[in-house]
Design a protein around this nucleic acid. Structure first.
Lengths: 226, 226
DNA sequence: CCTACCTGCGACACACCTGCGACATACGCG
DNA sequence: CGCGTATGTCGCAGGTGTGTCGCAGGTAGG
């Protein structure tokens, strides 16, 4: 199961470092540079963890924490400069679940994220196997195996496949995939999903014209064979 | 499962656009042009999502949100001309689940509605079993099984069958089905339901000419065998 | 700077859906 | 029994959903 981490941080450099580290750990990353943006995206995407910088332009991170906590149970981790330690207490009281001070050690932050994820997720599904017939996904290495042989897939293809296999045979609408994989921006687009499915089939199906794994459900969307 | 969306909006033009779009998406639509009306109808009909304009004559939309939230868990989406982030935060803290600013992209609004529906419907895992004799509906995969064998049905056929089986043997009038499945738009049409029942029978009945599952109640409508 | 790949887009093709209309049949009622 | 209405039956044609594939701009890596 691919987890999504939301980063609300106005410093481009720090956001970049966070993104790199998080992606290395196999997370999907959403970004926002303001509290307003963050609020919307969290509502929209329901990430599994939110990282919040306290020093944000405009609305303060502390208010963002309160707003988030008002409508969501999502784990919130405050990421802040050490001088803000007074704010940290306020942040935790506002509803944050943990905090990390800058400059932080990436490994430590990753560990705290895992802790939050472990706490908020059902143990049964926490380390679910992404396997469907001859197809096997390894989130660690972002690799797709087919009958044990590695199949080269792009980043987006990997996430779509992960989402589909994670759904365990349930139908996923194009819209669901657009939101979960492409994310917040591309809401209005056309046939991107169809195209990607087509390309995925060419890579994982024996006979792409008669798919046996990645099935179409006309009028609803796509699903993996159970 | 047919979902109902409530629109509280005083501008006739915007309400019309919303209605059209929502019906295109397969929702049943309820309308109100004032907060008072909206409150009554929500309590009466218990829609699955409520869209609220903030600028309403008389009682302000924000107060409507609070009133709704006081007595209901229904997802609320604010639709507002206000781009001021302050109102947005106030709205979300008042209990709204999301917001869209005018002029909005219809597709985006529809997507957000789906997001809310998805969230609010996930906890209620206790979906009743959609089974009737040898027929079995799986909403997860949008599949209809007959004696364990999958039967290909179209989107509308699936919804009609779901509505009928969900009614557990009660008679459903053509008008009821039209409203629930097709939506208010096609209310004046002719024999669409009869046609669809005919086609459904050809797919699920052993002898479509002598139906044993999908029964006609002359003068009233159709019902499933108990 | 070059190259290979990714990715969104649009165009076309094809199968399927679906509303419609016309006719046939069944039912209820006098 | 005969009539009117409700429903069953079925083919047609336009619309819609999806598959397919080539193109071009973008991007990452060498």
């Amino acid at each position: 199961m691919i987890r999504t981490v939301m980063v609300v941080e106005d410093d481009d450099a720090i956001r970049m470092v966070l993104r790199t580290n998080l992606e290395d750990e196999g997370y999907r990353v959403l970004e926002a540079s303001t509290a307003e943006q963050g609020l919307v995206i969290v509502q929209d995407e329901q990430p599994d963890v939110v990282l919040v910088d306290l020093r944000l332009p405009g609305i303060h991170g502390l208010d963002l924490v309160r707003s988030l906590r008002a409508t969501s149970q999502v784990p919130i981790i405050i990421v802040t400069a050490q001088t803000d330690s007074h704010d940290v207490v306020a942040g935790l009281e506002a509803g944050a679940d943990d905090y990390v001070t800058k400059p932080f050690v990436a490994k430590e932050l990753m560990a705290r994220i895992r802790t939050q994820l472990r706490r908020s997720s059902q143990p049964e599904e926490s380390e679910e196997e992404l396997v469907c017939g001859p197809i096997e996904l390894h989130p660690d290495t972002a690799e797709v195996m087919r009958n044990g042989e590695p199949v080269p897939v792009s980043r987006i293809e990997f996430f779509v496949l992960a989402e589909l296999i994670g759904a365990k045979g349930r139908v996923l609408s194009r819209d669901h995939l657009l939101r979960k994989v492409w994310g917040y921006g591309n809401a209005g687009d056309g046939r991107v999903v169809d195209n990607l499915i087509y390309r995925l089939r060419n890579k994982i199906e024996d006979d792409p014209a008669n798919p046996e794994l990645l099935l179409t459900v006309r009028g609803f969307g796509y699903r993996m064979k159970a």
